[in-house]
Nucleic acid binder design. Structure first.
Lengths: 332, 332
DNA sequence: GTGTCGCACGAAAACGCTTTCGGCAAGATG
DNA sequence: CATCTTGCCGAAAGCGTTTTCGTGCGACAC
């Protein structure tokens, strides 16, 4: 199963076989044909290790995450793995579990394995300390933004996503829109509030009450919905910071006899199918396009490997997924 | 940063340096000392590629999954990655997405990268066609059982898990226990029914109605709960095939004014925190111990690499997680 | 003093591949 | 016919490491 087997079967030298298989020019097409046929017949697979050893490219990238268990890392990983597969590359996966020692250990391990580059996936979308100075190969940050502006970070466009949601509500005639979301320590939560406010201002509307910051859980959604309805009983739409919160809100509204969406429209965030599609009623929500985000990160990493490195922050646009929890208001 | 740098700094030959670093016997301890010091000073990292190329061990295993997006593959992956990390090994991740062509492609790719072994993670726990004849290195099947009994499969002990749940209900005095679960095409669903029936038989009880097979969704849980209550209004406990179904069941019961757990106890399966812990009330459920399952798979793979291969099926035990949806029955 | 043994070490081969470079033959040009 | 070009090909070097095998040297026994 080695190159020399192929070469002898094709009746050429090892060197010629190598060139033929790699598409080098200096090989007669008849010869190339013979070599390719021989390789196919032997189902020859080049030994990537030796290849990488010589050419300096292992066609492998390290993917360093901090919380694979969370629901954001996986879609990014999927998108990245897919994009890398198209380029015949593979991903070495390491989960540092938020531990700095583990992270350093993994960085060393991956470097010892001669990975061509790194993708660092954040565990929330706060700023995260740059690792670039520890890593002599290209690095791209995904989901969370690096503290060093000379790095390249690909993050979700939370402000834009919130604008999509808000415009959807406003265009359906909703005028008294409340907002229930997660902890205000999350940049994502704050950015979404900013996007929402922008759209309301443009429509000469005001947010119904202050944004209710809490946690990313159904429980908080249920509780906050009661608070909001007590303070602003006339609210006709609630934009929620994620789908779990929205599911909780929907739960409380149903319990209080409000019709969704006839009386109150609800819109979620994240498009986490298990919650959004299985909610009563199914939730309109914003999809983060995380797979695309992973693919974008890979493409920029590949570009960096080719020497055209980028820097700064790229915001991956979201996409509105319309289900039954929004629609025009209906008088009872 | 190569071995020859270390050798010249220590004043020995490359060969001696190699032996010293690899702990071979035929090196004077003073010399070994010098080499190790030199290596440390240069922070030398052996080139794993060349190492693997020669010694035949790349310290890498391929993890082949069919649906990384599902919620079972991730914990297994985490457990495996952790166990491998302890052995200084890494995981090359490939997601075939249920596509046979992709799967073959990935197998070839991983083999070209000289992985030492494979872990094949199933996407459901049906039997899955053995891939072992295509793969010249050790293979361990995780979560789904291979069709070939000569393979080694590590699967979740669904029957045992169901017994845990049923015994919990029976020991709290529940006597009219219903069962709502997913499609009967799933071996997991059937095994859980079998476990449940075993316990009921031992307690001289009968299942309240037939098991209701449907889908793994909240929606089905809500619907099936109404069916069950209509047929058997006296039911005092419902064992659900997973946590989503249980959440739906809880939803319907609350809507119908039944108290949980005073009137009806509910027990789920999977311990999917987002649903189980955030349900109203939080769900008692069975944890599959999937991380442990991944670690077990790795340990058997490592054993196989050392030549002590195993065969057959190992069932990974589950564990009951008690929350508030079960407890003694209370007269109203 | 001579012979034997064992230990520590280094020279060199081997691994599978790419790449450089030189050579050979056929055809083009004068 | 001599010369030059061009197109193909193969010998060989090189990558960084492990491993085999041979060499030299000191210790010890006689």
């Amino acid at each position: 199963m080695t190159l020399s087997d192929v070469a002898s079967r094709a009746g050429v030298s090892i060197a010629t076989a190598s060139k033929a298989l790699n598409g080098r020019a200096e090989v007669a097409s008849a010869t190339r044909e013979r070599v390719l046929r021989a390789a196919a017949e032997l189902s020859f697979q080049p030994n990537v290790l030796a290849t990488g050893l010589i050419s300096g490219r292992t066609r492998t990238v390290g993917l360093l995450t901090d919380e694979l268990g969370g629901r954001f890392a996986i879609p990014i990983l999927l998108g990245a793995e897919n994009a890398l597969g198209n380029g015949q590359m593979s991903v070495l996966l390491c989960d540092a579990r938020g531990d700095a020692i583990r992270r350093q250990h993994y960085i060393r391990t991956l470097l010892a394995r001669q990975v061509d580059g790194f993708i660092v996936v954040g565990d929330s979308n706060e700023l995260r300390p740059s690792l670039t100075q520890d890593i002599p190969v290209p690095v791209v940050y995904a989901y969370a933004e690096s503290t060093d502006p000379r790095d390249l970070s690909i993050v979700a466009d939370d402000e834009g996503g919130a604008r999509l949601a808000a415009e959807h509500l406003v265009s359906h005639g909703r005028r008294r829109i409340g907002h229930i979301t997660g902890p205000d320590t999350y940049r994502a939560a704050r950015d979404r509030v900013a996007g929402l406010r922008t759209v309301l201002n443009e429509a000469a509307l005001r947010l119904a009450g202050e944004p209710l910051y809490g946690e990313w859980s159904q429980r908080w959604g249920r509780h906050a919905a009661r608070l909001l309805l007590a303070a602003r009983p006339d609210v006709d739409a609630i934009f929620c910071g994620n789908d779990q919160v929205a599911a909780g809100v929907a739960d409380t509204l149903r319990g209080l006899g409000r019709r969704i969406p006839d009386d109150v429209a609800i819109i979620g965030y994240d498009n986490w199918e298990f919650f959004a599609a299985d909610c009563r009623p199914p939730l309109t929500t914003v999809d983060l396009n995380l797979e695309q985000l992973g693919a974008t990160a890979v493409n920029h990493l590949l570009a960096a490997l080719d020497g055209t490195a980028d820097a700064g922050v790229i915001r991956q646009q979201g996409r509105l997924v319309v289900r039954e929890s929004t629609g025009p208001a209906v008088q009872s």
